[in-house]
Design a protein around this nucleic acid. Sequence first.
DNA 1: TTACATTTGTTCAAAAATAATCATAAATAA
DNA 2: TTATTTATGATTATTTTTGAACAAATGTAA
Lengths: 249, 249
Amino acid sequence: MNFQLRKHKILEILAANDSADVADLASEIGTSEITIRRDLNTLANQGLLTRTHGGAIRNDFDKPKIAFFDKNDVNADAKEEIAQKASELIKAGEVIFLDCGSTVFRMCKYLKNRKIKVVTNSIPVLLELLNSEVQVNFAGGEIDALRQAAHGPIATEHLARYKAEKAFVGVDGISIANGLSANSEKEAEMTMTMANNAKETYFLCDSSKFETVKYLSFSKISSVKNIVTDKKISIEVKQKYIDVGISLF
Amino acid sequence: MNFQLRKHKILEILAANDSADVADLASEIGTSEITIRRDLNTLANQGLLTRTHGGAIRNDFDKPKIAFFDKNDVNADAKEEIAQKASELIKAGEVIFLDCGSTVFRMCKYLKNRKIKVVTNSIPVLLELLNSEVQVNFAGGEIDALRQAAHGPIATEHLARYKAEKAFVGVDGISIANGLSANSEKEAEMTMTMANNAKETYFLCDSSKFETVKYLSFSKISSVKNIVTDKKISIEVKQKYIDVGISLF
DNA sequence: TTACATTTGTTCAAAAATAATCATAAATAA
DNA sequence: TTATTTATGATTATTTTTGAACAAATGTAA
């Protein structure tokens, strides 16, 4: 592990976490603290980060990040598990819809070397897959800065022109009685558009979202065929969904 | 195993792994470490890789993936001047087309606090204006990873749905006799689409590009009304363009 | 503020990698 | 064929990198 590799890793960690301390970096990278300190000083001189006592912070940490990896996400592990499982469902040569949710975004790292086409309205997904094997198709239209995605009638219309083998979409709530629900009208519309234009739709949904209802109910449970979830889901809940004909991955 | 074969193998390994150390390369290729070192130095001199202590890394290993600011651009000053001048032509409330050229990209920093709408096919422009006052509209479609922009029939069609007050587009070559020319068909098509759907089109063109003809001529000089250029343009050339009815900024 | 712990800069030594030099083997030219 | 150049490998000296020790500086809590 030489300086260049450490530099790369340090900047990567800093990009994801905004800040890092010497001890963590040393154990993460597998070198001594004194070496990390030297590296940080060098990188600070190059203007690539800002040194603090005990570590460093990202140089432009007040600028919003592009990739929205929320490290503090309580369900990070579950989301990662779901993302990985979902990725394995994709076959070479397929056309895939990916929506703008954070769980869906996590699928990107498993897709980079796959020969597939991805149609998405998510800017983080676009960026993550830009320099990869994947051919990206972005749904144009007005950009929603908050969600880092294209939304609205033009984006919807754009998506509807494409047909995909599989759609991977997040949902904010799911219940047998109330079906699918979302926190915003925009996201619900996107979800339905993707679902309507894909042969198979996989709803990505961590176990905490089962039997919850959010702001807007937008689809009955009968329209759901496949759900990808994490292993923390209880057997009882799982059985209830299987009973109504849904496959759980 | 001669140098050419080793070179091929080294670059292959580097392409796959990002980095490699001397000892690994030596055992992988079946030669001594000193020979590998000599090879690496030669290849580093040829600019094919970057030497590190103990090995080498791929040349573009830690190159930022987005933001295509070419620091070594010989015309950086001219481009900056042009970008600033062009930005001042925009009024509050206007809808603007921005294409995917590097000069146009430089306009972004002057636009961030303006109350305008920008329609673009450029990913760097999208990112730069994402968290700003500007409402961004991205032309969707297949993404050209090389140009970091959306191109193709869908993107063109998308753009054509919008009408803008002003379009700002780069050109690779301009001449009285041959009109506008570009290095690629894709860019020429985008340029024309923007020009056709804007009330006024400003061609951004540094002084070195005057009276040059590139790969593809795509429009006559009579369709050009406004050019934004830098102060290094000669009075004679300037006068020739004024004589055919073009305004130079 | 003081007392304490943590972090840092400095110095030094060990280890690793490199450059320089020379010798040998292979390829090429005469 | 022999002479000459070129590529490779081995040896040694030098440089670079790394880690440890310790004093100085900084931050934190009472």
